[in-house]
Design a protein around this nucleic acid. Structure first.
Lengths: 177, 177
DNA sequence: TGACTCATGTAAGGCGTTACATGATTTT
DNA sequence: AAAATCATGTAACGCCTTACATGAGTCA
């Protein structure tokens, strides 16, 4: 019931491979990190709820400490239902654009610094996407590959758009100095 | 103190023109809507706090009902300080990319529908940006214009990147049918 | 008069992060 | 032996939306 967003991400990750809550968080951070995020405070309660509903089963892991969570058939059905639900994104909030919109209060120099920062972030993202492509190419799964590449391509195009925008905007603002 | 994000947006909007809380919300929706959003539940308590801190003054408006909020000199200083603070965006969450990432569970047809939806949204945004450009061109302010256009340009480039991505991704997925 | 928009505010509740507490295992 | 990482969980708190309650002014 509650928190369909986190449930979807958790069940989705477990549909690829069973893992611990800790690994879940790492995986989401590393592989879905460019468009998603979950914290422990969300993951563990969600796993409990999913277990209670029969969507995952939990078994002891390699250490006395760890629990391996595996998606069940009911869990897979649940995941598919969740993925078919309409997208309910929260409204966008860009601290960068908010600052630039009121850039007159900041002055051109400070705005240029913000643009440099945005550009550096976009470059870092592109480097990350390149790494991700390698990881995906090496992975054995391969039935998920093309869907994953879809999201990487999306990210790369967004990042390149930011780079183009940064170049043009820098020119515009430098005209004011 | 509390809720610097909303304070920034509210003070920023009031730095352009004094207005009521209701108008504030409309303005944010219409002009900053492509990268920001605020609800009444945030705006009114924030206005109270800003008034208590001397960052805005509130006077009676044209109707018995309405309060016009005007930014003070201290408020302008406060706004500039807020804008200089480091950007603290919440981590990204894209319902679209989450669904596509686990697209194997959805199947190509459903994924194509999601891409169509994303494309339609991007087109709608481009139309909106075109309108915004007209509004900005007609506005008398003109000292804010170029900063506003910076954010419009950013949005347009993002939207166009989505259109390109949609075209390519559609091709890829149709190969699976 | 009734419907719609303008206008102000509050309350409840969900979402989500951060910080904390605790301990096992591995690496240096 | 110490430090780093793996691992699980909870508690507190802040952010934000939605829904509700209320009423003024405008327009048909």
């Amino acid at each position: 019931m509650a928190n369909p967003q986190t449930e979807t991400a958790v069940l989705g990750a477990l549909s690829v491979e069973p893992m611990t809550g800790y690994a879940l968080r790492q995986t989401i951070l590393e592989v879905l990190g460019h468009f998603w995020s979950e914290s422990f405070g969300q993951i563990y309660p969600t796993l409990t709820r999913l277990r209670e509903n029969g969507y995952v089963v939990t078994t002891a892991g390699g250490r006395a400490d760890s629990n391996i969570h595996t998606i069940t058939t009911a869990g897979t059905r649940r995941l598919q239902a969740l993925l078919r639900e309409s997208i309910a994104d929260r409204p966008p909030r860009s601290g960068l654009l908010l600052r630039l919109f009121f850039g007159r209060q900041l002055g051109p120099q400070h705005c240029l610094a913000l643009i440099d920062e945005a550009e550096a972030t976009a470059r870092a993202q592109l480097a990350r996407y390149a790494q991700l492509r390698e990881v995906i190419a090496k992975a054995e799964t391969s039935s998920d590959d093309m869907y994953w590449l879809l999201t990487v391509d999306h990210g790369e195009r967004q990042a390149r758009a930011v780079l183009d925008w940064a170049a043009v905007s820098r020119g515009t603002l430098q005209g004011l100095l």
